[in-house]
Design a protein around this nucleic acid. Structure first.
Lengths: 203, 203
DNA sequence: TGACAATTTGACCATACAGTCAATAACGTA
DNA sequence: TACGTTATTGACTGTATGGTCAAATTGTCA
């Protein structure tokens, strides 16, 4: 019997994600959100509770979606697990070198968080762990394939790749170009065995 | 004949760096700066020109100081060039895992910048290039020592280490602990030849 | 068709913000 | 000791911000 909502929650969060992605949490105004989502202020409050709460929602959604994307990229088809990681790292390098690529909500959250207790940090931490978990999974496959030595520390290796990806994101943001970022990715991949042609061959 | 300033510019910038380091550019208020530096608003304006300009000054100073610190760390004494890089990476891992470690002004600037044209980006980019240059220098020494193959791409390797450091900073910020970050650093160092004990040995 | 319950709307508010202004103070010089 | 130049002080301003309120609206069920 209550009046139904005029909006779809997913769409609103998606619009919010976009504007938060451009400005960050602190620099995004409520009016920005009103404009981006099309809802009135009060509706935003009814549905989400405030700017920060909406950001938290957007952050969670964004983390989940990023995880899904990575997960899918690393399960893709016919290549070997190591090849898939390789491909993913190189794709990320290219992605981050795009001049219009925006910094992830996760990185924004980390930088804007006030400490490790902050929800912004804890949510992002969970995202990082999940990301690493997906990588670890793929590395396990590689190990089962015999492409990785028995004694390799997969968990640590996975976290290492997450760190490199985060670092490449920042470098791309600073304007480091496609060739340089690709070279970084190739260097990073040298910790994995195999592929003699993994040596970077840039200027 | 003019009235002399009551403050020392360096000290003011140093205080500003501290408060910007805690809050970032957008979230730091002029009053925060007034409180932290002890100057009046007008004096801040006379001397620096505004919040953003002061941030740019703080950022430049901070980049320079960071570069000096890295440069010194990589020239330190009796160890071989590769050992020095190794030591530095491990020290950074520990530093970033400290729960009270703050995110660098450089990373803040990158995240708060509005695009590659933004001064925030260009200054930070310069800092990154300088950082990489210092690493490259050390790698050259290693190459001269014969610790690195002739065909190694030093420039790219240097940028790779900068990326890993940036990534470790973010992970530390997210609460990834000392052991895990150290393991990441050790993994990262595996791209360098030598030292069989470079395998991480964590849980 | 009428009434309920939540949603929407748009006006409203207190606060905090970056930046400015005019008056005053302090120093070196002559 | 008087002057000129610059630094300092603190009050001031216009705007924009996050958030709230009360009234009007809307779909649904009985």
């Amino acid at each position: 019997m209550p009046r139904p909502r005029k909006f779809v929650e997913r769409d609103v969060i998606s619009s919010a994600t976009e504007v938060f992605g451009v400005n960050g949490l602190a620099a995004t105004t409520l009016d920005d959100l009103v404009r981006a989502t099309g809802l009135g202020k009060q509706s935003l409050y009814n549905a989400f509770g405030g700017k920060r709460e909406l950001f938290l929602r957007a952050l969670s959604e964004d983390s989940d979606e990023a995880a899904r994307a990575v997960s899918e990229a690393l399960q893709h088809g016919d290549a070997s697990p190591l090849e898939r990681i390789r491909g993913h790292m190189l794709r990320m390098a290219i992605e981050f070198s795009r001049s219009d690529s925006r910094v992830s909500l996760a990185t924004r959250a980390l930088v804007e968080s006030t400490g490790e207790q902050d929800q912004l940090s804890t949510i992002t931490r969970a995202g990082i762990e999940e990301h690493a978990g997906i990588y670890a999974h793929c590395l396990e496959d590689a190990q089962r394939n015999g492409d990785l030595p028995e004694d390799a520390n997969l968990r640590s290796l996975a976290m290492y790749f997450v760190a490199v990806i985060r670092g490449m994101e920042l470098l791309g943001r600073a304007g480091v170009g496609r060739a340089a970022l690709t070279a970084v990715a190739l260097d990073a991949l040298r910790v994995l065995p195999g592929r003699a042609d993994a040596d970077p061959a840039q200027t």
